[in-house]
Amino acid sequence: MVSDPLLDSLASRSDWSEPDSVLGTYVAQMDRLIKPVDPGVPLMLTVHGLLVSGDLIPQWQWFAEVSEMNDYSDAFYTGMAEHMKEQSDLAHDAIRARDTGGEVTHRQMSALLAPTKYIHLRNTRIYSPDSTPGDGRLWRGRLCDVSGWTPGLASA
């Protein structure tokens, strides 16, 4: 039997560096919402040995809320919030067009197929063995850094 180096390297790779597909789908669906979420969906995440607990919100909403904070109020966050909201609207329009038999534009399809790489939480508390969690805050993290998760919030 002849060995194929390409197939051998693909077979030996593990998906440990990939984000959890269920959590990724969950976050992607949240990111496609076009209306603000309040209070958000409670989640607990394990990230590099720390417990991160907070409310999942859409990416565009996270940028909008950051842009409203006094200490971060600038054009970058406002612009990013507007861009992310536009992408969310395009993805939503693509789903609507697809479901009604309409034509999906290239921009809509691109927004719909954009990979979800980050998770966005509000009212976040980070628990570590040697400190007490601070007040809730906005938090953004890479999905591939989440090693475990569960619905709900951590109790004090």
Rank of each mutant, 00 (worst) to 15 (best):
V2C: 13
V2Q: 03
V2S: 13
V2W: 14
S3M: 11
D4P: 05
P5I: 06
P5L: 05
L6D: 10
L6H: 12
L6Y: 14
L6Q: 11
L7Y: 15
L7N: 13
L7Q: 09
D8K: 02
D8G: 11
D8H: 09
D8R: 09
D8S: 11
D8I: 08
L10V: 05
A11I: 07
A11C: 15
A11G: 15
S12L: 09
S12T: 05
R13G: 03
R13T: 11
R13D: 00
R13H: 14
R13N: 06
S14F: 01
S14Q: 01
S14Y: 00
S14A: 11
D15G: 15
W16G: 00
W16T: 08
W16E: 05
W16K: 12
W16Q: 13
W16L: 08
W16V: 11
S17P: 01
S17Y: 02
S17H: 13
E18L: 02
P19H: 03
D20P: 00
D20E: 09
D20L: 01
D20A: 00
S21A: 13
S21V: 04
S21G: 12
V22Y: 15
V22N: 08
V22T: 08
V22M: 09
G24W: 06
G24Q: 03
G24N: 08
G24V: 00
T25C: 12
T25K: 06
T25V: 13
T25S: 15
T25P: 09
T25W: 13
T25I: 10
Y26R: 14
Y26K: 14
V27N: 05
V27I: 03
V27A: 10
A28C: 04
A28L: 03
A28Y: 04
A28K: 07
A28I: 06
Q29N: 10
Q29Y: 07
Q29C: 08
M30P: 06
M30L: 13
M30V: 03
D31T: 03
D31Y: 04
R32V: 02
R32F: 06
R32N: 05
R32G: 02
R32I: 06
L33N: 08
L33K: 07
L33F: 09
I34M: 08
I34H: 14
I34P: 09
K35G: 04
K35N: 15
P36N: 10
P36F: 02
P36R: 13
V37N: 10
V37C: 15
V37A: 07
V37Q: 07
D38R: 15
D38W: 13
P39S: 07
P39F: 01
P39E: 01
P39W: 13
G40C: 02
G40R: 01
G40L: 12
V41S: 11
V41M: 06
V41K: 11
P42R: 12
P42V: 07
P42L: 09
P42I: 02
L43I: 08
L43N: 02
L43S: 01
L43R: 07
L43Q: 07
